[in-house]
């Protein structure tokens, strides 16, 4: 579904990613593990065209997207929960959600989707007229996921959706991700929480200092020395 082939990116003189290749298969949950500063967010930004690679290519459903603009890329069916969630703070919950379906603005589709999101997150229905900045961290996380789902993405990118949430909420978020995936959305999950993530994902990649240092099924990764030492402390 999505193939990142030999991508290198740099911010000015600083090289962020070196020869990174990632393959996401339709219907799967793939995860990307790695410490802070490894380049996980940069990889997400590269897929989204916020950063353009200096080498390599990104192919989404048979089409090269690495030179497109972000708004063109997301219209091809990629939804994103960005790092830090990046909800629109001064807008209401409902306005945030509606922006998620920006490409189909004004169509009869949107109202139906909004109801589906509210069914999935009843909390957001209660809060629909509330300014997003005044909502709790958990509600904001749901809002960010709901907004990404409003565009009916074929591929959902999640950049540390559990960051800063209580263990109970993290559990809920992971269950939601699984449910979203079961309904047919391919998921690419960037996380620091290796144990939980590997329990959920089918495939995984390990990124360190801008390079892929490990790849395989979730089980294989969980067994590998590098993951066990660095993340699982086993």
């Amino acid at each position: 579904m999505l193939e990142v082939r030999g991508v290198s990116t740099r911010y000015g003189q600083i090289s962020m990613l070196r020869n990174v290749s990632v393959t996401l298969r339709e219907g799967e949950i793939a995860c990307l593990l790695g410490p802070n500063g490894a380049g996980k967010t940069t990889l997400i930004r590269t897929i989204l065209g916020i950063v353009h690679p200096v080498e390599g290519s990104v192919v989404f459903r048979g089409e090269r997207i690495d030179s497109l603009k972000t708004n063109q890329i997301v219209k091809r069916g990629i939804g994103v929960v960005p790092e830090g969630r990046r909800i629109f703070p001064k807008m209401t919950a409902e306005e945030n959600l509606r922006m998620g379906a920006f490409a189909e603005w004004g169509t009869s589709e949107v109202a139906g989707r909004l109801e589906q999101i509210f069914d999935r997150f009843p909390r957001l229905r209660e809060r629909r007229r509330q300014i997003a900045a005044t909502m709790s961290g958990g509600e904001q996380a749901m809002l960010a996921i709901g907004r990404a789902l409003m565009g009916r993405p074929k591929l959902l990118l999640l950049d540390e959706p559990s960051l800063g949430l209580s263990p109970l909420l993290v559990e809920q978020i992971f269950e939601m991700i699984q449910a979203i995936n079961r309904q047919g959305t391919t998921v690419f999950l960037v996380e620091q929480n290796a144990r939980k993530t590997l329990a959920l994902a089918h495939h995984g990649y390990l990124l360190q200092k801008g390079e892929i240092v490990g790849a395989g099924t979730a089980a294989e990764l969980g067994e590998s020395d590098i993951v066990r030492h660095a993340y699982l402390r086993a």
């Binding site: 989204l48 916020i50 603009k69 972000t70 708004n71 997301v74 219209k75 994103v80 960005p82 990046r86 909800i87 629109f88 703070p89 001064k90 807008m91 306005e95 922006m99 998620g100 920006f102 490409a103 907004r147 565009g151």
Partner: peptide, 15 residues
């Protein structure tokens, strides 16, 4: 308003 609030999030919504 989305541009005022967060340009990157606006881009990611397709704006």
């Amino acid at each position: 308003n989305t541009l005022r609030d967060d340009e990157i999030a606006a881009k990611c919504s397709g704006v």
